[in-house]
Design a protein around this nucleic acid. Structure first.
Lengths: 246, 246
DNA sequence: CGGCGTCTTTGCGCTGGATCAAGGCCGCGC
DNA sequence: GCGCGGCCTTGATCCAGCGCAAAGACGCCG
């Protein structure tokens, strides 16, 4: 039994039994995902509609403009959400972390592309199925709406950053916001993993790869951060926060 | 009987009888606002909780960070939604037109300031009151959520614009998007009114006032647009669209 | 009608970040 | 161990848009 979504040809591996061994009740991201508002009985109902979907680094979960056949909970890994201009310029709208929900708007078409930055596990629902469940469960809709409100706030912060901040401020703000998002999902630490490359950061911050590299190294030389393989240690939080203050 | 919101001291005129003469049923923006999903009986219910609020040019409806005591439907006029950095840099997240809803996220605090660009009429609801109605009417919540999804799409378009477009592209895209939003609310025309000043456009597009002025005049000289008092006539839509293409 | 404040346009030099061009680093496969 | 490819860094130069300054344009009010 194969999944029947429009993006299935891009999907390397669909978990055929359709759910994890332990089920939603043991899901690692349950308490930080939209599912946290569901009772156990409701979870089982949703579980029947769900399928795990695993991506490898670089694979596309869905593409901008495609028919939105599915919605997803991110269980593990990080995805980048991007839009492309015809001439190749790219803007990364954000990064989806475990616990994030993709397809919030429940719209006809995806407004961004979602690509795996590394190994990713998602929980997939048919959009129609999911919409029917939402229809029947106002508290789930409310939870989705609250997330949408949060996303909107993040988007506003990002607009302020893109429109009015300097390169150094952009980089500092990005590191802090990533730290905060990790903290929300449990991993509070001054060492921030950077699962995305420099080009991805650049396309998120409206900069070039060279400028991102220069700013990171400038912050390092100023002992505000310490560049470590695969990430960054935030040494001088007050200074970074001063740079990023809104 | 005075309104009791935190922003009341800034409000010049509250309509004491609490509703328009004709009531919601005759509201000019009913069919394009969130209220369009409500039945007549429900409208009356909501009407009992509503108050008209009138602002003059330059007045603040609410400020960023203030306790969100109220939510609003814009009935007439245009507001700018902005965020300020402590050093005075400003980013305008968008402009609210008639039919728009302010307070979509139903969050504890306003994430932006809302200021009238000219005379504005709004329909005000206490946030708690409104939240209670939403709680009881899932279809209203659904309507709000759909709007939130639309706002999120707009925000993404704006991020792409701010991060990856040139000054000329920004201005062209702005004019077209404004035209499209007017079209949605009924006024389809190649002549686009610009209720905001150059500085407001600049702060929306991540440019300076001089650059906005230069680009508008460049487009005018190139016969892509015609600058007219208080607005712009879009002469060469295909060319503008080519500039703004995503 | 004329003075005044606000907004817009325009010219000009400057600069932050882009662009171009080498290198360096590192992991991987052979 | 060594060659190869993908990132990342660093230096040098360039230029789109900024910042400053001055001069229109357009009400508005007395």
């Amino acid at each position: 039994m194969l999944i029947d979504t429009g993006s299935c040809e891009r999907v390397p591996h669909a978990c055929h039994h359709g759910r994890s061994e332990n089920g939603c009740a043991d899901c690692k991201v349950r308490l930080i995902s939209v599912c946290s508002v569901l009772a156990l009985a409701e979870l089982e109902e949703l579980e029947a509609l769900s399928q795990h979907l695993i991506l490898e680094k670089g694979q596309t979960l869905f593409g901008q403009g495609e028919h939105a056949g599915s919605v997803f909970n991110v269980i593990a890994g990080v995805l980048r959400l991007s839009r492309l201009l015809p001439d190749g310029r790219r803007q990364i709208m954000g990064f989806a972390l475990p616990g994030d929900f993709l397809g919030l708007a429940l719209q006809e078409r995806y407004s961004v592309s979602a690509e795996a930055l590394g190994p990713v596990t998602t929980c997939r629902f048919g959009r129609e199925d999911f919409a029917a469940v939402v229809e029947a469960k106002p508290h789930l809709l409310k939870s989705l709406h609250e997330r949408a409100g949060y996303e909107l706030t993040l988007a506003q912060e990002q607009m302020l950053l893109l429109g009015r901040r300097t390169a150094e401020e952009k980089v500092a703000a990005f590191l802090l916001s990533l730290r905060e998002r990790y903290a929300r999902t449990g991993h509070a630490s001054v060492t921030v993993e950077l699962p995305m490359g420099r080009q991805d950061m650049a396309d998120h911050l409206g900069l070039t790869i060279e400028t991102v590299s220069r700013m990171l190294n400038r912050l390092d030389r100023a002992h505000a951060i310490l560049l470590v393989p695969g990430g960054v240690r935030l040494l001088d939080l007050p200074r970074l926060e001063r740079m990023a203050t809104c």
